[in-house]
């Protein structure tokens, strides 16, 4: 069997092996209801990772995603009462616009995306603090349930978040595989200079990638706000690195051009299973982070297709 041909499939094989491994240890884990609720819990992280995939796919990175989600929880909480359902549009628009700003700073001012998105993240944090007065805000529960209750309930045993996640995944997959935008992003990630020399408006497409990343971070923020029925400037902290990890474990390398949103879906699930498995194996809370780091190294060593990398930096 040719190992090279198997390599692209390593991420989902790893996922399967992990699930079976944990399942053997505790068959309860494999119950559909449990697996579905496990998947449902990870949806905000997944949406954030989905957005990040676009930034990473073009060889950049978006470090503003977490601050963006934070700010959006505040925005959603503050404007829910006055705007009603339209607050969702406002949130996505803000995310899109700020992502565009990151993209503009990166492409037009030649500031590496590592720095530009970090700076835009700082901007988001400032806005969140200012809007919230540095307090935790609460949404009106009745209004939330009326307008956004559909996001978080259950249909049968399936958490509604999953429908949202699948819908967004389908849209992103369509963008990636079937649109000029997706094709251009692939070209930019795999060979930016060649794309430019083919007359592709590289700067515009890169800005769009960051904008999509921002918009999806905003959706993640909105979902947080709805789930927690409120917002605060630091409520989503601790999500950025796992989201990046989810993208990379899924098989989209930081160099860009390979992988994609489907990989991220698998990567997010791997992260979720690793997290959940610590409960099943009775890893103590104080040990969890360390174990997570170690398992992560193993997971990356297994999933990452390094055969095409000439040098590893």
């Amino acid at each position: 069997m040719d190992i090279q041909r198997l390599k692209p499939h390593f991420p989902w094989i790893t996922l399967l092996v992990l699930v079976i491994f944990v399942g053997l240890n505790d068959p309860n884990f494999l119950k559909p209801a449990n697996l579905l609720s496990l998947a449902g819990d990870i949806v905000p992280l997944f949406i954030m990772a989905l957005g990040l995939t676009f930034a990473i796919y073009i060889g950049g990175i978006d470090l503003s995603a977490q601050s963006m989600a934070n700010m959006i929880t505040v925005v959603a909480s503050v404007y829910l009462a006055s705007l009603g359902i339209w607050v969702a549009l406002l949130c996505v628009a803000i995310g899109f616009a700020l992502g565009m700003l990151s993209g503009f700073i990166t492409t037009r001012l030649f500031v590496p995306s590592f720095i530009s998105t970090l700076a835009v993240g700082g901007l988001c944090f400032s806005m969140a603090q200012w809007l919230s007065g540095n307090r935790a805000l609460n949404m009106d529960a009745a209004e939330r349930d009326a307008l956004f209750g559909w996001m978080i309930g259950r249909t049968g045993i399936i958490p509604n978040e999953l429908f949202l996640a699948v819908a967004l995944l389908a849209i992103c997959l369509f963008i990636e595989r079937r649109t000029t935008l997706g094709r251009a992003l692939k070209a930019v990630g795999a060979g930016e200079l060649a794309a430019a020399a083919s007359g592709v408006n590289v700067a515009r497409f890169k800005m769009l990638a960051f904008a999509i990343s921002g918009a999806l971070a905003a959706v993640a923020g909105l979902l947080f706000a709805v789930k927690l029925s409120g917002g605060a400037p630091t409520i989503a902290n601790g999500f950025l690195l796992p989201a990046i990890v989810a993208v990379l474990v899924g098989g989209t390398p930081l160099t860009g051009g390979v992988g994609g949103v489907l990989n991220t879906a698998i990567g997010t699930l791997i992260v979720a299973v690793i997290r959940a498995s610590m409960l099943y194996f009775g890893v103590e809370a104080t040990q969890q982070q360390m174990v997570f780091g170690l398992v992560l190294i193993a997971a990356i060593a297994l999933t990452m297709d390094r055969s095409k990398l000439r040098t590893v930096k």
Partner: peptide, 25 residues
Amino acid sequence: HVKLRIPSFMASLAMGFVGTGAAVL
């Protein structure tokens, strides 16, 4: 990073988790 050929971004990020985790422990 070098022996397992894992990009330094990921290797060091994961090691950072391990370090913080060890400190917690």
